[in-house]
């Protein structure tokens, strides 16, 4: 076991600056994850050349792999840095910001495009109001519930977008995660009343048809969300919607 933990971090001072690499080393201790190591480094921000530098900036919150904040490329793989154990990683551990989103600073990126996509795709179940109307949602088949649950664990972390060859700053594609949310809400017994709107929102430019079925999304999703099932299911739904729009207007 090495007595040090070595890092090679891709840094960038601001959105318009050019990136550069900086290397750090810290004393080894068992059970470190990437975030806890970064926390150590922000308290002792000294690079391997012995220079005291500005602490590395990154994004984190829950530290339990449910909030999605701390996603970055770790040795080239997009994942949550809080769940990336140092003991499992080859060193030097190479940290890079996600490449598909604008860098804010160092390892922090701006993923607002993902949240905009959730808005664009109308990923919600419209209700009359947040008051009690004294009835529950209709009875739901537990199997449907279980399938919906898989999708509702999506934490908008961006791993699927990172791995998607169709999603990048120059493409209009909404990416896999928002498509999963359309599928989720279309499967709800009352959410389906608004499926036309949601389907229409993904039948234009940047919508479902821009998916290339490389299926990397489902491989890298930290929550094992069956994104390709959603994409296939939406293929069927949009096909039916097309016929509906042609013949039943």
């Amino acid at each position: 076991m090495s007595s040090e933990i070595k890092f090679k971090i891709k840094r960038q001072d601001g959105p318009n600056n050019s990136p550069y690499w900086e290397e750090f080393a810290m004393p080894y201790a068992p059970s470190h994850n990437v975030v806890s190591a970064l926390m150590y480094l922000r308290e002792h921000p000294i690079n391997t050349r012995g220079e005291r530098v500005r602490p590395v900036v990154w994004d984190c919150n829950c530290m339990e792999e449910v909030c999605g904040a701390c996603t970055m490329l770790i040795n080239g793989v997009p994942k949550q840095s809080c769940a990336a154990l140092v003991d499992d990683l080859a060193q030097p551990i190479v940290l890079e910001p996600l490449t598909k989103f604008p860098v804010v600073r160092d390892l922090q990126v701006d993923r607002s495009r993902m949240f905009d996509a959730l808005r664009m795709t109308k990923a919600w179940v419209p209700i009359d109001g947040t008051y009690d109307i004294h009835v529950h949602a209709p009875i739901i088949d537990p199997k449907v519930q279980q399938e919906r649950y898989e999708f509702s664990r999506c934490m908008t972390c961006g791993c699927c977008m990172e791995a998607c060859p169709q999603y990048h700053p120059d493409s209009a594609f909404v990416g896999p995660a928002p498509l999963g949310q359309v599928y989720l809400h279309n499967a709800h017994p009352t959410g389906r009343f608004f499926r036309d709107d949601r389907l229409h929102s993904i039948m234009g430019e940047g919508g479902l048809t821009d998916c290339g079925n490389a299926q990397n999304c489902v491989q890298v999703c930290p929550k094992n969300i069956p994104l390709t099932t959603a994409i296939g299911g939406l293929g069927r739904q949009t096909t039916m919607q097309m016929f509906k729009d042609i013949f039943m207007k």
Partner: peptide
């Protein structure tokens, strides 16, 4: 007293509450 009403509202929002085999909460 208001808790059941809150749960019903959440349910209507589409929250994926775990179900019994007959599909109720």
């Amino acid at each position: 007293e208001d808790a059941p009403g809150l749960i019903r509202t959440y349910d209507r929002m589409g929250v994926t509450f775990s179900r019994t085999p007959e599909g109720v909460m």
